[in-house]
Design a protein around this nucleic acid. Structure first.
Length: 635
DNA sequence: CACGAAATAT
DNA sequence: CATATTTCGT
């Protein structure tokens, strides 16, 4: 890292001597690569054996500033190397002859800071040092105090076009430049635009927990912030969210008082609704009495949000490369995953990160399975659709191997305002494959998503809207979406339904959140350090392994779904019935094992299993119990 | 300076 | 259009 050399010269010289570890099992390629790297004036260490490369890294990661490795290699594949590199906090560039979507995506998802397609040209290599700088922005910033870059008070910044005309028109080059705003580098001293925090469920859960602990009245931004202890989150962020949250509470109240009928499936408030889900506790805290009751049956279905990922996302922040990538648009050689994505999937893509989904009506492809996706990317397919899934996962790190980078970030920030990654919203339907459902009804699609934790409360759709108050404690195990789905899904949902007041094993997301916080001492620690063990698995999320502070980034995007009418046409009638069904449905699946058809059942199974596990492992405290404690502050 | 409401940006 | 950020008055 240190480019000590930097000091001496001007920036231009900086990259000179940058220590690059080049790995490629193909002698020819390696040679070529070395030559090019040398031409860039880097200091090159090359090896054809990935194992050796690993050893070198392990012995002394300080020996290199950057790693550039071929993906396909005999013994240890490039991903292992990538993993290690990431652990050491080194930027790793993947190199491959494959420029297809899967390959590129895989590399990026795993945390590669760039993905170059062979044959690599000098141009691409000339810019790789940017990654090194990015990785060390902080320290680097110190070195150059007044650099011109930061000072951008106002006016000026002339360049809008930038370098285009200079030499040839190659296009490539991504990165940085953008004049205003982009640059994700994150924090840094300067005053850049604040990264946009996406209030993921997890984040919101934490928020709610904090509010709860403080007591509704006492909950002010600063205190909440402290309780949440999430790195990167600012008081303003909290204040803003609080504002919205209060608004939501207010709405709710009004609704109640006025006899708002629950059944109104109003689409409009969906967002609030969502919040409700999360905030189950609120009622208590607030001391509001809620009608409660009876209705729950229906309501219960609605929600479940597994608290999976814990984090937030800040855009533009440092670490995760993911997000940063946001701007690459197209470059000649370096395949831009997103770019690709883009092209591939066209139309409705959205970002899934947040799990908001759009309601696109139908999509062409739905891809059937979900798990595979997550499990390994191989599955990803060629089909565009795959993309969507992926996206979803991406932020969190989905692959089997651990992806530190991805998981690490606590907050997710939005990457670029501009073009982000989109995700096909559509794709999500996986779960239900069999059903011919008449329509590709939206419902179905949702389901697919459901497995992901991510929906933001805001985005989800709610099927029916109940007065939130009615469901204070329930927790749904399943994702809300599930609920939505009328038919098939419905069943599943029921499983979870929390109707029973008894509170058996419910897990309220919030509670969990809270739980985690309390229990997990790590909470505050840096996310960077935490590795993600289990995050990979989508379901894993449920486990809530980490301290939950990660953030997620959000891309841009657009639309959300609300529309769907929530569909729901078939609202669910009574929970019990459903439950019954659910059970039955599940059983078969369980027994069967899990064949390849992953449909919802599997998913559910998984979820359930995870939950159980979770309980066992964590000794989940009786939610109820916990609830009792904290939640009942009798103010 | 912090909070909260409103304006504004994305 | 919704959500998050920024601004502004208290």
């Amino acid at each position: 890292m240190e480019f000590g050399s930097t000091e001496d010269g001007r920036h231009d010289k900086f990259p000179v001597g940058m220590r690059v570890l080049a790995v490629d099992d193909n002698p020819t390629c390696l040679r070529k690569l070395e030559e090019l790297l040398l031409r860039c004036k880097y200091h090159v260490t090359k090896t054809m054996e990935s194992r050796k490369a690993l050893e070198m890294l392990r012995e002394n990661s300080n020996m290199f500033d950057l790693v550039i490795s071929d993906v396909e290699m005999p013994d240890t594949d490039g991903f292992k190397l990538l993993e290690i590199g990431l652990e050491m906090d080194l930027p790793v560039i993947m190199l491959s002859a494959h420029s297809d979507y899967d390959s590129v995506m895989k590399g990026i998802i795993h945390g590669a800071c760039d993905y170059l397609v062979k044959p690599v040209g000098l141009k691409e290599l000339q810019n790789i040092w940017h990654h090194v700088v990015k990785k060390n922005i902080k320290s680097y910033a110190k070195l150059l105090p007044p650099s011109e870059s930061d000072s951008v008070p106002s006016a000026s910044r002339k360049r809008k076009d930038k370098v285009n005309d200079s030499g040839d028109e190659d296009d490539s080059d991504r990165e940085e430049d953008d004049g205003e705003g982009s640059e994700q580098d994150g924090d840094e001293s300067g005053t850049r635009k604040k990264p946009r925090v996406v209030w993921s469920q997890e984040l919101h859960q934490k928020f709610v927990s904090a509010v709860q602990q403080l007591g509704l009245d006492k909950a002010v931004p600063k205190k909440i912030l402290d309780l949440m202890s999430i790195e990167g989150l600012t008081r303003e962020n909290v204040a803003s969210h609080l504002q919205k949250y209060r608004l939501y509470l207010k709405k709710i109240d009004e609704g109640q008082q006025q006899n708002m009928t629950p059944d109104a499936f109003g689409t409009r408030d969906s967002s609030y609704f969502q919040m409700a889900q999360l905030d189950g506790l609120r009622d208590f805290t607030a001391a509001r009495q809620i009608p409660s009751s009876g209705l729950l049956s229906r309501s219960h279905l609605t929600k479940l949000q597994p608290p999976m990922y814990s984090s937030i996302n800040l855009q533009g922040m440092n670490s995760s490369s993911f997000i940063q990538q946001g701007h690459h648009q197209n470059s000649s050689n370096s395949a831009n995953p997103f770019g690709t994505y883009h092209s591939t999937l066209s139309p409705r893509i959205q970002n899934v990160n947040l799990f908001q989904r759009t309601s696109s009506p139908l999509e062409p492809l739905q891809f059937p399975r979900s798990k595979s996706y997550i499990g390994d990317f191989k599955g990803l397919g060629d089909r565009a659709i795959g993309g969507s899934f992926l996206d979803t996962c991406m932020p969190f790190g989905s692959s089997s191997t651990s992806l530190p980078s991805a998981s690490t970030n606590p907050l997710m920030l939005q990457a670029n305002y501009t073009q982000p990654l989109h995700i096909a919203s559509d794709g999500i339907q996986p779960c239900i494959e069999g059903t011919p459902s008449n329509s590709a009804s939206p419902n179905i699609s949702f389901q697919g998503l459901s497995r992901f934790p991510g929906h933001s409360w805001q985005g989800n759709l709610n099927t029916t809207r109940f007065p939130p108050s009615s469901l204070p404690l329930n927790l749904a195990f399943l994702p809300d979406q599930v609920t939505c789905a009328g038919n098939n899904l419905g069943d599943c949902t029921s499983l979870v339904s929390a109707e029973n007041p008894g509170g058996e094993m419910q897990c309220d997301p919030q509670l969990l959140g809270g739980f985690m916080q309390n229990v997990n001492p790590l909470g505050g620690q840096k996310w960077e350090q935490q590795n993600c063990t289990m995050l990979n698995n989508p379901f894993g999320n449920i486990e809530y392994p980490l301290p939950a502070d990660n953030m997620v980034f959000r891309d841009n995007n657009s639309t959300r779904s609300k529309g769907l009418d929530e569909s729901l046409m078939n609202p669910i009638d009574n929970s019990q019935e459903y439950v019954g069904k659910a059970t039955t449905m599940l059983d078969p699946e369980m027994k069967s094992g899990k064949p390849e058809n992953d449909n919802q059942h599997d998913v559910f199974d998984d979820i359930m299993n995870e939950m159980m596990k979770q309980e066992e492992n964590n000794g989940m405290v009786p939610v109820a119990t916990r609830f009792g404690f904290d939640s009942f502050p009798p103010p």
